[in-house]
Design a binder for these strands. Structure first.
Length: 365
RNA sequence: GUGGGCAUAGCUCAAUUGGUUAGAGCACUGGACUGUGGCUCCAGUGGCUGGGGGUUCAAGUCCCCUUGCUCACC
């Protein structure tokens, strides 16, 4: 892995992240394909909307179909027919999101499958080994995503556990896979800084900030975004996990983050919310029934070039699969195009203006 | 023609021996979604209980008439 910062504009920066299977232009957005599929999208369509890397999930691939099945198929890239980079999340988030089913100990997490209730154990060693078997390009350290709200005491213990697990992950990972650490520390600045310092000393390939956008007030998340990026090494990729809405990404890029993933474009597409340069549109609203104009006349995606709001409204209300597909194509294209515009603005040293112009246009509908 | 059954929200149906403001699902309207188990979740609009008369403190519920649908038998 080779990471190089190309341009800076304040704390915002563009870069190139070279991996064996491809080079990413940062700031980059990674569509989420939890179960080895970006919901509703074929790999071909992902390339069309401009995806350079996708995210898959260790926990889900482990439970089904199982990493051995994937290995038999020749690895995750072959299995899902995507030859570009894949980042695998470690399963740490599922410790949080499926918390009623799990128990955390020093060695890892015992949990029950949400599919069939069977008992399983994943710790840092297991997570890295599964990710090795899957053959992902960027491996995430196994962490505990500290819930919100949590007490200072619990957050401290959880953060320290994540740090100890990170050390085990570092010892377990093998080249050429690259390993990113995950900073925790909840909403407490001193714990966040302590977590970052400890992980920096271990020298990972990249650094992620986790444990945000887990239900805390938006102002708190933005506060964390604001001070966190500059605490991470400037010569390594900085990844803000699970974020976010376009306005969150703008704030994070401004602070110096390079990588993002979020289910917002894909999930909201399925639920009928579409993002445009003029703001959000809820396509099922009756006012679009006879709106025979494109979804976003400024957008160059397949959906906007070929279909109308009226048709998308009809497909949504009728529950047609095509509606979900066209909506997802648009939202992903919108996000990836948004990142392209962000990179151009940074290169030209006008990110700050771009941000305010973009935000004021986004309020218009 | 005779006898029985049914009529409750746009649709399909609930509503204790008559007992508070007649409910639900779907549809409709609006909203939510931040390292994705879940085309999901939340909220709202919508009723002269087919029509008319009667009994009762009280009727969707009981009685009579009427209209429409339906089944059985002539």
């Amino acid at each position: 892995m080779d990471f190089r910062v190309l341009h800076t504009d304040g704390n915002a920066r563009t870069g190139r992240l070279a991996l064996a299977r491809g080079t990413l232009s940062t700031p980059v957005f990674m569509p989420v394909g939890t179960m080895g599929a970006v919901k509703a999208m074929s790999p071909h369509e992902l390339l069309d909307v401009g995806a350079e890397i996708i995210l898959c999930n260790t926990y889900h691939m482990y439970l089904r179909p199982g990493q051995e099945t994937v290995a038999e198929a020749g690895g995750l890239h072959k299995f899902i027919s995507w030859d570009r980079p894949i980042l695998t999340d470690s399963g740490g988030f599922q410790v949080y999101s499926l918390s009623p089913l799990r128990k955390i100990s020093e060695d890892g997490v015992t949990f029950r499958s949400h599919i069939d209730g069977s008992a399983h154990f994943i710790g840092p060693r297991e997570s890295i080994e599964i990710q090795r078997t899957l053959g992902s390009d960027i491996v995430m350290a196994f962490d505990e995503c500290t819930p919100y709200p949590s007490t200072y005491d619990y957050t401290l213990k959880s953060m320290a556990l994540t740090t100890r697990w990170a050390e085990i992950c570092l010892k377990t990972v093998e080249k050429p896979q690259t390993l990113f650490a995950i900073v925790q520390g909840g909403v407490f600045k001193d714990l966040r800084l302590q977590s970052a310092r400890q992980l920096k000393d271990m020298n990972f390939d990249g650094y992620a900030v986790g444990g945000v956008s887990v239900g805390e007030p938006k102002e708190i998340m933005h506060e964390i975004i604001g001070y966190m990026a500059s605490e991470l090494p400037s010569d390594k990729p900085r990844y803000l996990m699970g974020v976010g809405f376009p306005e969150d990404i703008l704030a994070a890029v401004e602070a110096g983050f390079d990588m993002f993933d979020c289910v917002i474009p894909t999930r909201t597409a399925r639920h009928g919310t579409l993002l445009t340069t003029h703001g959000r549109i809820i396509i099922g609203n009756s006012r679009f029934r006879r709106d025979h104009t494109p979804l976003d006349s400024d957008c160059g995606c397949y959906t906007c070039l070929n279909f109308t709001r009226s048709y998308l409204n009809h497909l949504y209300k009728a529950g047609e699969i095509l509606g979900i597909r066209l909506n997802t194509i648009h939202n992903l294209f919108f996000y990836l195009d948004f990142m392209k515009k962000i990179r151009a603005a940074i290169e030209q040293g006008r990110f700050s203006n771009f941000k305010s112009d973009w935000l004021s246009a986004y309020q218009m509908c």
